[in-house]
Simulated assay, not measured.
Amino acid sequence: MLTIGDFASLGRVSVRMLRHYDSIGLLPPAAVDPHSGYRYYTAAQLGRLNRVIALKELGLTLAQVRAILDEAVDLVELRGMLRLRRAQLAAQVAADTARLSSVEARLHMIETEGRMTSQDVVLKQVPSIRVAELSAVARSYEPADIGPVLTPLYPELFRRLEAAGVNPAGPAVAWYDQAVDGDGVVVHAGVGIEGSRQAVGGITVVELPAITAATTIHHGPMDTADRSLQVLARWIEENDWRTDGYARELYVEYWPEEADKGVTELQLPVRRA
Score class of each variant (00 low, 15 high):
1 M>H: 05
4 I>K: 00
4 I>T: 00
4 I>A: 00
9 S>P: 01
10 L>H: 00
13 V>G: 02
15 V>R: 05
16 R>W: 06
17 M>F: 14
17 M>T: 15
19 R>W: 02
24 I>E: 09
25 G>E: 08
26 L>H: 02
27 L>K: 01
30 A>N: 02
32 V>F: 00
36 S>D: 00
40 Y>M: 00
45 Q>I: 08
47 G>R: 15
47 G>Q: 14
48 R>M: 12
49 L>R: 00
50 N>R: 14
56 K>R: 13
58 L>E: 15
61 T>K: 05
61 T>S: 13
66 R>S: 12
66 R>L: 11
69 L>R: 01
76 V>M: 14
79 R>S: 14
79 R>H: 14
86 R>C: 13
88 Q>G: 04
88 Q>M: 10
91 A>N: 10
93 V>C: 12
95 A>M: 11
96 D>I: 10
107 L>C: 10
108 H>A: 14
109 M>P: 02
109 M>G: 14
110 I>S: 11
112 T>I: 04
112 T>M: 03
117 T>F: 07
120 D>L: 12
120 D>M: 11
122 V>R: 15
125 Q>P: 00
128 S>E: 15
129 I>Q: 15
133 E>L: 10
134 L>S: 05
134 L>I: 06
135 S>R: 13
136 A>E: 12
138 A>P: 08
138 A>Y: 02
144 A>T: 08
145 D>E: 11
147 G>S: 14
151 T>S: 12
154 Y>S: 08
155 P>E: 06
157 L>M: 10
162 E>D: 14
163 A>S: 10
164 A>T: 07
164 A>Y: 07
165 G>D: 06
173 V>H: 01
174 A>G: 07
174 A>F: 01
174 A>L: 04
176 Y>M: 07
178 Q>E: 15
179 A>W: 00
181 D>F: 01
187 V>N: 06
189 A>W: 04
190 G>C: 03
192 G>M: 02
192 G>A: 11
193 I>N: 03
195 G>W: 02
200 V>T: 07
203 I>W: 00
203 I>T: 05
205 V>H: 01
206 V>M: 10
207 E>V: 07
210 A>C: 03
212 T>Q: 14
216 T>V: 13
221 P>F: 03
224 T>S: 09
224 T>V: 10
227 R>H: 07
228 S>L: 03
231 V>L: 06
236 I>M: 03
237 E>F: 06
238 E>P: 06
239 N>V: 07
239 N>C: 06
241 W>D: 10
242 R>Y: 04
244 D>R: 08
248 R>S: 09
249 E>M: 05
251 Y>R: 04
255 W>T: 15
260 D>W: 04
260 D>M: 09
261 K>Y: 03
263 V>P: 04
264 T>L: 05
264 T>F: 02
267 Q>F: 00
268 L>Y: 03
